[in-house]
Amino acid sequence: MLGMHLLLGEGGIVHFGYAVYTGAGAFVAIHALRAIEPGAAWPVSLVPLFSGLVVAVLAWPLGWLSTRGTPLTGAMMTFGMGELLWAFAPAFPGFFGGEGGVGANRVTGLAPWGVTLGPQVELYGVVAIYAFVATWVVWALARTPWGYTLRAVRDNPRRADFLGCNPHAVRWRAFVGASLLAGVSGGLAALHFERVTTDSLGTPRSAAFLLFAVLGGSRTIAGPVWAAVLMVLAFVVLSAWTPAWLLYVGLLFVATVLYAPGGIDAWVAQCSKVAGLPGAVPWLLACAAGALLCAMGFVAMVEMAYHLQSVALYGPVVQVMGMALDVRDADCWVGAVWVGAVGAGTLALCARRGGAR
């Protein structure tokens, strides 16, 4: 997500094939793990850094092609390259492993300070260190002359070119830097799962990176943090809770684009500013209550609608937010509609009061 922030937020570069670089980093890392023999003098914790450097080298010529033309041309180039690699990956089972992928054991090589990465807590510590260092590096880069030049190219490339900087070269460096971060994240994923498949290179994964980057916000360093949290909640928590999780993610994306184009980060910052105004806290609480009621009613209706398809298998009762709802009972549907309507009415009143303020 930090790489997407560097591309989309700082450089205004839309990348439709970001999963190609995270997936390539994962495959490089998994093969590096297989090459490290037990007891070898190579710490496994440096494998993600190695995968990031390899991916940066691979992205050097691809980035030159992807950043030459207009942003739209570059976006289509990244999409085409992503589709090309994803299509060719099954044809090389020696490297990509075919349908089963490639597996390895992360408990190998040198164990500095007794850290073998066997326990999950040790792996989480390594991931946290990499995340902290990468976040600091991206934050510091944004405050260098090159970072200001990148934003100038994003906002007005013609004027930046007139002032003497080369927009292509600036975007090219940003592309390579983002690919390095993608390779590091792919290497960390390989250490965590100890298996990599061609699904990590696919277009759905690239679309997920772009979608959650927009949801989290791409103009500040807090945006990638929000994006990563939302992505984990969606793919790990929400997907295990309901089969309709993609519908909720899609609706959240549409609502963000319509009502909070700056993402969750910009929305939270705006709420923080509003909370400092006199009498704004009760208004914000009323808005939160209305949004909660509206979401509860909508979720109840969606879950009951989805459960109608499997009544014969699981029975008519579905558990939603700790409540047992009978999809054949009209009162449950009326209650869900009533709760959602109350929430929507509360939000409408809050919007009217907010406009009057």
Rank of each mutant, 00 (worst) to 15 (best):
V47Y: 01
G82S: 11
R106S: 13
G11Y: 01
A29Q: 01
G63S: 04
S51Y: 10
V44P: 00
W113Q: 08
I13N: 02
G114N: 06
V121Y: 11
G101S: 02
L49P: 08
L117N: 05
F96K: 01
E83L: 15
A140L: 07
L72K: 10
R106H: 10
W60E: 13
A142W: 04
G125F: 09
A128C: 05
V47E: 02
L53R: 01
P48K: 04
M81A: 08
V57G: 13
L8V: 00
M76C: 04
A56S: 09
Q120R: 15
W64H: 06
H31T: 08
G63N: 05
L53K: 01
M4G: 12
E10I: 09
E83W: 07
L58W: 04
L62N: 04
I30F: 02
R143Q: 14
T73P: 00
G11S: 15
A91P: 00
A111G: 09
G9V: 05
H5T: 11
A75P: 05
T22G: 05
T67L: 10
G52E: 03
V20P: 02
P93Q: 01
W139E: 13
I129S: 06
G82R: 03
A29M: 04
L46R: 06
F88V: 14
V127A: 14
F92Y: 14
L85M: 11
P38D: 03
M76I: 12
A40P: 11
A142D: 12
A56Y: 12
I30Q: 00
F132Y: 11
F79Y: 11
F92L: 15
G125T: 10
P71W: 03
H31N: 08
H15F: 05
A128G: 14
A87D: 05
M76V: 13
F16L: 13
T78A: 09
G109W: 00
V138L: 12
A91T: 13
F16I: 00
L7F: 05
F88Y: 14
P119I: 08
P61V: 06
G100A: 09
P71G: 03
S45L: 15
Y124T: 06
W42Q: 10
R106E: 07
V20F: 06
S51C: 09
G63C: 08
R68E: 08
L8S: 12
A134Y: 11
A91G: 03
L33G: 13
V137N: 09
L53C: 13
A140E: 13
V133W: 08
H15A: 03
G63K: 00
E99Q: 13
T108R: 08
A41W: 03
G25P: 04
V57I: 15
